[in-house]
Amino acid sequence: MRNDDSKAARILFGYDRLRKGFVLNKEDLADEFKVTQKTIQRDLNEIRAYIAERYIGEAVRYDTRQKGYRLVNNGGKPVSAIEVFALVKIVLESRAFNKSEMDALLNAVCGMASKPERKAFNDLILNEKFHYEPVTHGKPLLELIWDIGQCIMKKEVIEIGYTIMNGEERRRIVYPLAVVFSEFYFYLIAKFEDSEYNDPTFFRVDRIDSVKRLGRTHAYRRFEDGELKKRVQFMYGGELVRLRFLFRGPSLEAILDRFPTAVILRKDERGTVIEAEVFGKGCLIWLLGQGKQVELLGPEPLREEFRQMIRAMNEIYL
């Protein structure tokens, strides 16, 4: 192997290990590559200069406790095991990925912690990882989500093959606007091409069988994912509705967390009157589950539809 090749291999190896959260020890690297520690130090200096130039807020620093060099970020603060643990707990609780993708995600996230921390950390999640049960579709999603994300960023018009709930296959030409996660599933939020309606349509990503780029872009305005999520309940599409209801339950905080757009209109002996903006009628599912704690006040057409739902349910149990 030529010297130039050896140097390139060392630098790429060191950079890759730093990116994965490993600590680099000069003595160990010198033994592995059969070079002097001064040579390894020069390699580290080049990696350090490259990262300092290309990545704002990241740097290669010597860790006296670990006796080696590591990549730090967040203003010099390395990712802690506590932060990694929180991320993994959220990912595991989502149940959104099949087992192979979940294992890959866990390995990637765990690699951000130091070696001693990873051991303690793995012990903490071992039982949850063993008993992990993904949602039933079992499809790989990461690559599909990434591909759709690229189309969103470039405003590309796409044709999707999609399987609806009854098993029928459909093809739709859409403007992809956002990908969001809610209640175990990822959703593509999109607008039908040539549709007179501006209201968003939702497609569960695991039901998308194919994505075809049509080689053209759209001029539809950028969709604000965060603003949309504030107004969407259970990923039901539809018109924007100004919901008004009376809450008589014990935990007002839980209501405000469920409806981020909620505004308290008044409080009295009857309860708290709340107004919130929501898309579509998914909110009715939640309202049914609240029993006598919630009374839907308006709008009147939605209140009437809610009455009919309650009557239909009541007839089942008569």
Rank of each mutant, 00 (worst) to 15 (best):
R2I: 03
K7L: 09
A8R: 03
I11Y: 06
L12H: 00
F13D: 03
G14E: 11
G14I: 10
R19D: 05
V23D: 00
V23R: 05
N25R: 13
N25W: 04
E32S: 12
E32D: 12
F33E: 01
K34S: 13
T36E: 04
D43R: 00
D43N: 02
L44Q: 02
N45E: 06
E46Y: 08
R54M: 14
R61W: 00
R65G: 00
R70C: 01
R70N: 01
V72E: 09
V72P: 01
N73T: 14
V79E: 03
I82G: 13
A86Y: 07
V88P: 04
K89Q: 14
I90M: 13
V91D: 08
E93Y: 04
N98G: 07
K99W: 12
E101G: 14
M102K: 09
D103Y: 11
L106I: 15
G111H: 01
M112H: 01
M112P: 12
S114I: 00
E117C: 02
F121W: 05
I125M: 13
E128L: 11
H131S: 10
P134E: 04
P134T: 00
V135R: 13
T136S: 12
K139Y: 01
E143D: 01
W146Q: 12
D147I: 15
M153W: 11
K154L: 15
E156M: 11
V157K: 08
G161D: 06
Y162P: 02
M165H: 15
M165Y: 09
G167T: 06
R170M: 08
R172S: 11
I173L: 14
P176W: 00
V180N: 00
F184C: 03
Y185A: 05
F186W: 11
F192Q: 07
D194H: 14
S195D: 08
E196Y: 01
D199K: 02
F203Q: 07
D206M: 05
D209W: 06
K212A: 06
R213K: 06
R213W: 06
H218L: 06
A219R: 14
A219K: 15
A219Y: 03
E227Y: 01
K229Q: 15
Q233A: 08
G238P: 10
L240R: 15
R242L: 03
F247Y: 13
G249H: 05
G249A: 01
P250V: 02
L256W: 00
L265A: 08
R270N: 02
V273L: 07
E275N: 05
E275V: 12
E275M: 05
A276T: 02
E277I: 03
F279A: 04
C283A: 12
L284V: 03
L288E: 07
G291P: 05
Q293L: 04
E295V: 08
E295L: 04
L297W: 03
G298A: 03
G298D: 04
P299V: 07
L302A: 08
L302Q: 07
R303V: 02
Q308F: 14
I310F: 04
I310Y: 04
A312L: 09
M313R: 12
N314I: 11
N314S: 14
I316P: 00
